[in-house]
Write a protein that binds this DNA or RNA. Sequence first.
DNA 1: GCCGTTTTCGGCCCGACTGTTTTCAGTCG
Length: 572
Amino acid sequence: MERERIVGALEALAALSELLGENPFKARAYANAARTLSKASRPVESWGEPGVLEALPGVGKAIAEKVREQIATGSVHKLEELRAKVPPGVRELVGVPGLGPKKAGVLWRQLGLQSAGELEYACLENRLVSLPGFGPKTQAKVLEGVRLLAGRRGKLLLPSALAAQAALAARVERAARGARWLFAGEAARLCPVVSGLEVVLEAGRAEEAAAAMGLSRAAPGLFVGESPEGAPLRLRAAAAEGLGSAAVWFASGEPFREALRAELARSGLAWTEEGLLREGRAVPAPSEEAFWRAAARSPIPPECRELPEALEADLSEVVAEGDLRGAFHVHTDWSDGGATLEEMVAAAEALGWEYLGLCDHSASAVYAHGLDPERLVAQRAAIADTQARHPGIALFAGVESDILGGGELDYSDELLAALDLVVASVHGRFGLDEEAQTTRLVRAVSHPATTMLGHPTGRLLLSREPYAYRWEEVEEALVSAGAAVELNANPHRLDVDWTRLPSLRRRGVRVAVNPDAHSVAGLADVRYGIWAARKGLARRGDILNTLDREAVGAWLRSKKARRPQSRDGGGE
DNA sequence: GCCGTTTTCGGCCCGACTGTTTTCAGTCG
């Protein structure tokens, strides 16, 4: 948390400096330092020691002092100074897709706009078109961006939602004064995006607790408000003897809930949000355990309560956190990672992993210091050296190859063939039409060197939509090529989406839960991927990195040895 | 604001794309 606060302060310094039109290189220096610190391997606790910060690239005397000031006092004087010059609403203008600090600054200074709401209105009044550097297309794009932003308001990514939920627990506990309560809603079932926090609380104390928390009554038994993080907050009152039933009801996805309701009805139990009834008489379910006993079922964990199939599935086969034996797709400071090869390998070993796939960016990803052919070869030698020092973990030398505009990979076939694995990913040309994008992805997946397709939709949760292409054709290509698909576990991505997992499973496409880590801490992101995989009821056998070291090595070799299919698209 | 066996000053990740211009600025990855 402390690291996030420090990085956030530097990012704010960068954004405000740019908005205020200060030296753009100064703003970039703040942004560079923020990126360095977000990925730095040294723990935040050591940052106070003399010289530690200054040793990091992009961090000099001035920024190091600001960071130490933030650690010591909780704020940075310079940042407060800049904040005082910019109205709070103006900062959200920079967050509008299509608006950068320059254009946002023009809108603020020339039109006096101070919020996204005012911006929307100005677009509707056609007031942007006459500004220098603006025109009808920019105005239309900005209007679209504002509406996109409005759709995101109050939504949280899972890590923020879980932090918010933890903070909420303390508030509810105080307000409940001994009454029992349980979490429900999307955060309880670990949804990638959470549009509200929810608790159910014993009805006898609900009114009082809601008042203590500053919530207002929206309907009988429902109190609403907003969390400090800006997410909607719902408190539901439930009869004490039905608290468990209500918690299961409100923490289940609708398709699952309907299927369970129908199943219970067949056995003579009427299940509603009010509780459980048999022949008109209440069946007590004060806890979730009691509910599942009454339902004559083993408990189904909240994150698995999405698909109706969860009712028939053997949940002991569904992949769980402890099942991962290793991971692919990890970055180092050879490209845009913050940790050295040695540090990443040691960290993976410390997690108990049996193997690690090293996949830095390829040459076309210039902004990420992608590896040109010479450096890729040099890195393979460095990986071999590291392997010699770490016999306890198998290292796979790979690359995250950009998928070029026409679906080509980024290196010669000879160079690609010499690698243990290739994650093929799109990092640009998002705007191709559906036809071209589909062809491009099918071609990349069909390349014999492609081991797996990285973050297949390209979405960034709450900030960028998936690019347009026909998924079915790409899935078909994955099947034909025997390639795997990534479930990118970065909580901003969680891509492929869990709703695709049942179909991938049916078609025998292996899924790799990949951290896409750019730092030592990023390795732990695999847990978000596992939670998403559990929503899609992926079994251990569906997930490539539940295989042990020997089996995964054999799988990678067999993929490499596979003859290209006799279909077009096998590369140049 | 950072950084340096080209430099303690004068550069600063680099290229594609887009919409605005009539040669380029802003944004994005």
